[in-house]
């Protein structure tokens, strides 16, 4: 005999199930959640990727990082960023970091690998760090850029 739980058809149960599924989706626990390198919400630092006809740009929202300690590598189309920050050290000399009320900011080291479109040319990468946003722009390979084609009228 089937477990009585499996045979339940009360609409209240299915609503609960749906709610639970929605919650799992919300927290990124529901499979399949996309790319294998995808992350759950709230991962530090969040990353956005955009493209223009000439280049691919990755924006990494990582405030309070020492640019000297930032490591950035490009291997084929994989962009790797690793850095860290110690929020307890940021507090200042005359404050005991143990005396906190809230500690919501990320502290520690991170490493993220971002898979970019294969059209990028890793040898043409530029990076800037401003107002806590790391912007990495990678030129697309010449032959993979979209170009306008003139139509000849005969």
């Amino acid at each position: 005999m089937l477990s009585p739980w499996l045979a339940v058809s009360d609409p209240a149960w299915s609503q609960l199930e749906e709610l639970s599924r929605e919650m799992q989706k919300l927290f990124g626990l529901y499979a399949p959640s996309g790319n294998i390198r995808g992350v759950v919400k709230g991962t530090f630092p969040p990353v956005n990727v955009a493209e223009t006809p000439e280049k691919v740009i990755a924006y990494i929202y990582a405030p309070g990082i020492d640019p000297e300690k930032l490591e950035l590598t490009m291997e084929k189309n994989l962009l790797t960023i690793s850095a860290g920050r110690d929020t307890a050290a940021e507090v200042g000399e005359n404050t005991d970091p143990a005396g906190y009320y809230r500690r919501e900011r990320f502290s520690g080291t991170f490493k993220r690998v971002i898979s970019l479109p294969e059209s990028v040319d890793p040898s043409k990468t530029e990076a800037t760090y401003q107002a806590g946003i790391l912007t990495v722009s990678i030129a697309k390979k010449e032959e993979q850029r979209s170009r306008k084609i003139a139509v000849n009228i005969s």
């Binding site: 507090v91 900011r105 990320f106």
Partner: peptide
């Protein structure tokens, strides 16, 4: 997200606001 600490002279608040100058 914020961090809030207290020392004997006052309260220290740190907030992450990337993109804000």
């Amino acid at each position: 997200p914020v961090d809030i600490y207290e020392n004997e002279n006052g309260i220290v608040l740190l907030a992450d606001m990337p993109g804000v100058s």
